[in-house]
Design a protein around this nucleic acid. Sequence first.
DNA 1: CGTGCTCTTGAGTGAAATCAACACATGTGG
DNA 2: CCACATGTGTTGATTTCACTCAAGAGCACG
Lengths: 228, 228
Amino acid sequence: MNNLDESLLTPLALFSKLDRAQIRTILDLATPCRFDLGATVFEEGQEAEFFYLLLDGYVRVVRLTPEGDQVIALHIPSGHLFGIAAALGHTTYPATSVAAAECVCLSWPMKLLQEFLTTYEGLSTGVYGAVGQRVEDMNNRILELATQQVEQRVANALLRLVQQTGHKTDEGIEIGFPITRQDISEMTGSTLHTVSRLLSAWEREGTIKSTRKKIVVTDPHKLVRHST
Amino acid sequence: MNNLDESLLTPLALFSKLDRAQIRTILDLATPCRFDLGATVFEEGQEAEFFYLLLDGYVRVVRLTPEGDQVIALHIPSGHLFGIAAALGHTTYPATSVAAAECVCLSWPMKLLQEFLTTYEGLSTGVYGAVGQRVEDMNNRILELATQQVEQRVANALLRLVQQTGHKTDEGIEIGFPITRQDISEMTGSTLHTVSRLLSAWEREGTIKSTRKKIVVTDPHKLVRHST
DNA sequence: CGTGCTCTTGAGTGAAATCAACACATGTGG
DNA sequence: CCACATGTGTTGATTTCACTCAAGAGCACG
């Protein structure tokens, strides 16, 4: 029996339909864990032993091609589940997960997932809703990759990052975790050179400010114009 | 009460865990329907009223960008469910579905989907397994679009079509429904001109044979070489 | 027997990758 | 504390892949 506080879960939309006792039960089965920036939570193809709830930080989901190119599939913000492969019939993880910032998580053995979903009616709606959200994101990503130019894709990627992870500073909205040109190129199917050129141009025209691993969007409206 | 024969569903993996009585019940709630080649089953954004089981034919799932570009997300082969938006928390269809060949379907009111999933334990595994399969496909598609050249993407698209819909003829394996260069370009984020050039080149080297709306792969191995 | 679709092919162009070189920051170990 | 390696970012020059533009040929259907 661990002593995790119920207030960890009660504010999360995912658990909003559960009562205190149910949350207590779930919490008592959880194992807390921490990951340093850059640490790997699990790798593509591994037996899917655990699923996770991200309490704080950001997790980056990446895939690797046989040729060695890396593609960033999505970023998970705190409060969301990840590694829920088994809910969709997988027994191995379909992608690698890496901590994009210091991360605090809870984990449960994968076999509990099916149990949770059937036992706690309210949970499955939320879980499958989240899956649906990700499917939609992926769909939009495909649309973008198939029809848009690199400039638009990079602008869209930044806008999404700002929207999902941004926090206000006195200069504008800053992306919530360290991110490199290389990372952005892997999110957009591009190269770090092209991304660097674009960001330089945008910095010159006053749309963003950027230092090493940090990007602040000062004029989101201009970015939106670049995105269409 | 309609008189649909139970043998429509019994061979399908999706229903393999249900007994005769359960299949009878489900079947009695179904409405059969037919779609001509090119007919629209439902459109993106519409209220999701029904979900469908494709008994025969092929359904093409397409999305439209604000700029009017069309992208083909995937093809549904017979025996599979489609329009199951509600299982992932959507109330509207996330994409448009068009008959890529003559289609025969069964349809059910969407509100029955939740009911079926909770009532028939064995069904939900299959349904979510299918969703997982599609998520994986989409993921691979993203990887392809982000890292591969047009030639490789077209080769992969053809291989997938052959695998999923192909049937043997005396010349090779033929794709199971009429398909144009334009269609292939919309599957690969390319243009009909580039696809035409590639197919011409492959025909010259003896990899495929193609006439209007028809493609026969005569040498799959060569195609595999073009795909990597 | 014209009127759309579908497909082909050539020529020119352009967006973004590649190639190449350097600048700057960060952290490490001697 | 400095020397050095490493990771990150910038920018120019060159190249190439695939798109755009353009024209025409073949087929299918009313």
